[in-house]
Amino acid sequence: MSPLTTTIITSSLATGTIITMSSHHWMMAWIGLEMNTLAIIPTISKQHHPRATEAATKYFLTQAAASALILFSSSISAWNTGTWDITQMTNPTANALLTSALAMKLGLVPMHFWLPEVLQGSTMKAALIISTWQKLAPMTLIYLSMNNLSTTILLTMGTLSVMLGGWAGLNQTQARKIMAYSSIAHLGWMVTIATTLTNIMITALIMYLLMTTSMFSSLISSKSKTIRDTTTSWTTSPTLTIMMMLTLLSLGGLPPLSGFLPKWLILEELITQNLLPMATMIALSTLLSLFFYLRLTYTTTLTASPNTTQTKHKWRFKPSTPNLLLSTTIPLTTMSLPLTPLITN
């Protein structure tokens, strides 16, 4: 793509999210979501590959259906209450439809089928944008309309997302699909806590964005697309390999690392709210996610590749990717746990 086209698409992507995040009128929120969707489609399909075209089509259809549902639910609400205010949706039917639409936008179970397929058909950079930036607008709408959304539906979807994110990820060998199921599981955690404490949801979202960005940046830098590719990532940069291992363990939520922080706060709050069975279920389901993170960790840093190269670098050009994103997100991904008292206060 030409620099002008890239600039227009990137600015439209940013503007769409900002419009949605700063709006109080459903029509403006919908316009922001539409801008967002239309800007990401060329980004996915720019490879001119059948798989990329398929991914772009799947993304467009699901997002268009979700946007139509949002418009439909807000119209029902406006018809009954006479207001288009996002925070004033009181109609139960409209709220149930809105909950389903936002779940489809985010890729929560049972509306998750598009997410792994779309990520697999995209480039690594497009997959990074879909997994991080594209989650901001729907999460903002959940935050704004949380008092009116259906709690039962959200808790059920959250629990199922954490469970399926663990189970389905066990079967994958592609890094992008693993990250897709990881995204589904993390969003499940966020949606679960959204019903009681939205500030913990925001903390979990920020941590998820940091961890996912650093993980994707590591995969882009080492040019790893499958689990098998990670076995030779040490030839690119041994330091990067160690950082990738710590990022994976942080994604899994192991205590000394930052990823433990949101899980700890969420479980604590769920127990306080007497939701013990659900807290137990999602905590056990996280062990499944941890298993495939550990498997990636094992292939990345704890094994020597069977065909060990004698050269210092891989048989290709040295990676010329800018490391600013990587160097800013990795410290936060691994060392934010001491900030917990600051966040809880």
Rank of each mutant, 00 (worst) to 15 (best):
M111R: 02
T140M: 14
I86E: 01
P110W: 09
S289P: 00
G259P: 00
G188Q: 02
T195A: 12
M27R: 08
L275Q: 13
L97A: 15
S131Y: 01
P338S: 13
T309I: 06
I41S: 07
L324S: 07
V118Y: 03
T301S: 11
M139Y: 04
L205P: 01
L108C: 02
W79E: 12
Y143N: 10
K58A: 05
L4E: 11
M281W: 02
I178S: 07
S74P: 02
G165S: 08
M157A: 09
A101R: 02
N171V: 14
P341C: 09
I70T: 08
T328K: 04
I206E: 02
M245I: 14
L38K: 04
L155R: 03
R316N: 14
I31V: 15
M163Q: 06
I330L: 13
T195C: 09
V191P: 00
N147E: 11
L119P: 01
S289T: 15
M179G: 07
E269S: 06
N345M: 13
L33V: 08
N274P: 01
M35P: 00
T159A: 15
T239L: 12
S217E: 14
R176Y: 05
T87G: 05
I153E: 12
I19A: 12
Q63I: 05
T235E: 11
M278Q: 06
H25F: 12
D229A: 09
A39S: 15
S22G: 11
S327F: 15
P262D: 04
R295L: 13
L337P: 00
L254A: 02
I19V: 15
V109G: 02
T159R: 01
I130G: 04
P255M: 10
T300H: 07
I242C: 06
T272R: 06
H49I: 15
L154S: 12
L187F: 05
S285I: 02
S12Q: 05
K46T: 07
I18Q: 11
L210T: 12
W167R: 08
L164G: 01
V118C: 11
Y298T: 13
N80E: 12
S320N: 11
S258P: 01
T247S: 10
T5P: 03
T151F: 10
A204Y: 07
S221P: 00
S327Y: 15
A56F: 06
A194R: 00
M190G: 00
A55G: 09
K225D: 08
A55Y: 06
P50M: 07
I130R: 06
T311A: 10
Q63C: 09
L219R: 10
T6G: 07
S150R: 04
L284R: 06
T309C: 05
A56E: 04
L98P: 00
L149M: 13
S23F: 05
W189F: 08
W26S: 13
N147G: 13
W315I: 05
